[in-house]
Design a protein around this nucleic acid. Structure first.
Lengths: 340, 340
DNA sequence: ACATGGATGACAAGCGATTGCCAAAAATTG
DNA sequence: CAATTTTTGGCAATCGCTTGTCATCCATGT
């Protein structure tokens, strides 16, 4: 492929070269390429042949300049190294590529400011945004949503179209599981204060434990990283709880390590339930009981929602909310409550 | 910030609006913004003020169209969900952002074809490319390198500027470690056939084991995923080796799981050494002895090399090769050879 | 006070595509 | 076969910015 690359490397063929070779006007080439059906079948074939021969690739810059669209979607995640997000990233990437879009990945480093900044700086260069676990305030988010098309993941609906992972219901499953194992003193280990998911999980935890008349504790907030696990483990152990429901797997895995160091056995002395079922949850020690969800699918759905908004002609339901189901995956980090 | 957003949402301010507000020509605005020093201090301030007031962001499209540069670099990785790469991605992202560039992330899904395709399709939209663990043949790579600026990571030098992680020397360290533990029958568990790193590691393994007169085996190739670990573990166990040096941590972690299932104890019956020290290597069971390297730094260095090529005026050494040091991190997956 | 040179900033020509408009050609109809 | 409709494809304006060219202006040296 690409054998007759005789032009000097720097010179890319333009639409004019193609038009000349095919013996038509540039506008015809443009239409043949981006709006087939508007051009004669034979002519189009001739044009496509010429384009292929020249190894012509339209300049997305020029295309964007005149059409106003960039065929690009920016995906903002708080932490690129958090395995939770790369399933989202991959899901989004798949769906975007299928639709001929390019993905712009931005790591906002858990900072609302960087997030707002990226949103602002890229508003010209992206047709739309996917905000995964946005750290923005409701007001900031509303403002951003007013300026450009965006879809959020794990964020309050109503402000913008959103894909939520139904962790509250997973919390209930987790509590049921723990109660059935005899636990009555349960601790919630909280994630970032600005995380909407965290708030929802905490809320579900409170409601459910109150109803079941369980003794509860809570510690946190902690950064959602394994390195915060030590502090979280110490705090949780100090409460006297026999089981913990942890904001996410990263934190839970960090706790596992610390508890082991301290000689607190999991699950004999303390049961741990994580959330997300990320890469690593199945091979840590002990393997983590966790609330699993179709994260990659969440990424795909978010993109679909965004694209149907960007290209209303393709139809699409235009729904503003998608809820992803979750289920508890029981592994070895939960067990019967210790006898007192 | 951005309080007087009175324009209708769709209409972005252009350079003309800024020029008008500041009372100068558009060209002056352009120069003031992208080439300060070419414009009077006071005038520039006035322009900057006007720009800020209008919340003006230059269109990267238009800018790219006339300048020929896109201020964008594409980073191609074989598998976005492989933790090894996200350190590279993050390193690259940091360095790119610092230089005012945008990162385009592409997951080539371990496919040489997708890689070549992306390289081709994006040649107009990116100023340069970073190819992490390229799966291209030497010929394809040479062709690509002739068409556009690119830097490879973990790929033969000479064809293009490269950042290599010095795993061969790490292999030697690993062998030394295993020999000192009494192992004499060692198996190399190979990664993808198209991986240059794999070839280099295998070569180093062979040379060193020959010199030390060790009994060696090799199995593979295997896909670098935990799911391939089962097959790899079975094959390795079958050889009768007492220790394995595994292409990467992903595969090694997969093997760990399988060996456990089969009742083969690690490290009592079999020692395992991984490579890369990825996320998870420290908390798997048992924690993995592995060859660690500054992966994020590799990403940063690759970007630096690329940028100094794209912007020769900024100087930069223009070196074509950077070697990242590695060292063995001993954890619990290696131990004394079993007594026969 | 005059010539000189360096800053400064206005003008206008592109960059490579898209797209509205319209004329020519082809297909359809009565 | 003429009249009408539908297709087809060319012209040229336009998108927002960069940049080469050149006139103007001011500070400097003599």
């Amino acid at each position: 492929m690409a054998e007759l690359q005789l032009q000097s490397p720097g010179k890319q063929p333009t639409i004019r070269d193609v038009a000349e070779l095919a013996g038509v006007a540039t506008s015809t080439v443009s239409r043949a390429l981006s709006n087939p059906g508007r051009v004669n079948h034979v002519t189009r074939e001739r044009i496509e042949e010429a384009a292929a021969q020249l190894n012509y690739i339209p300049s997305s810059q020029a295309r964007g300049l005149s059409s106003g669209r960039t065929q690009t979607v920016a995906v903002l995640v708080p932490d690129i190294t958090n395995p939770f997000y790369f399933d989202i990233i991959r899901g989004a990437q798949h769906q975007l590529k299928a639709a001929g879009y390019t993905q712009l990945l931005v790591d906002t480093e858990e900072s609302a400011e960087m997030e707002a900044d990226a949103l602002q700086k890229m508003r010209r260069s992206a047709d739309g945004f996917i905000l995964a676990a946005s750290r923005l305030t409701d007001a900031q988010l509303a403002e951003a949503a007013a300026q450009q098309p965006l879809v959020t993941i794990n964020r309050a609906p109503a402000i913008a179209p959103t894909v939520v992972i139904d962790t509250p219901s997973a919390i209930i499953q987790a509590l049921e599981h723990l109660v059935s194992l005899g636990h009555t003193r349960i601790c919630f280990v909280g994630g970032p204060a600005t995380s909407w998911s965290n708030a929802k999980r905490w809320q579900a935890f409170q409601e459910e434990t109150t109803e079941r008349k369980l003794t509860t504790f809570s510690v946190g907030p902690f950064a959602p990283k394994t390195t915060s696990g030590a502090a979280a483990a110490d705090a949780a152990a100090h409460t006297g709880a026999t089981a913990c429901i942890v904001f996410n797997d990263l934190l839970a895995i960090g706790m596992l390590q610390r508890l082991r160091e301290r000689g607190i056995r999991v699950p004999e002395d303390m049961s741990i339930v994580g959330c997300d079922d990320i890469f690593g949850a199945d091979f840590c020690n002990p393997p983590l009981t966790t609330m699993a969800s179709p994260i990659e699918q969440a990424g795909r759905v978010a993109v679909s929602m965004l694209l149907s908004r960007l290209n209303p002609q393709y139809g699409g339901t235009g729904r503003r909310l998608a809820v992803m189901p979750t289920h508890l995956t029981v592994r070895a980090s939960t067990g019967a409550a210790p006898v007192r």
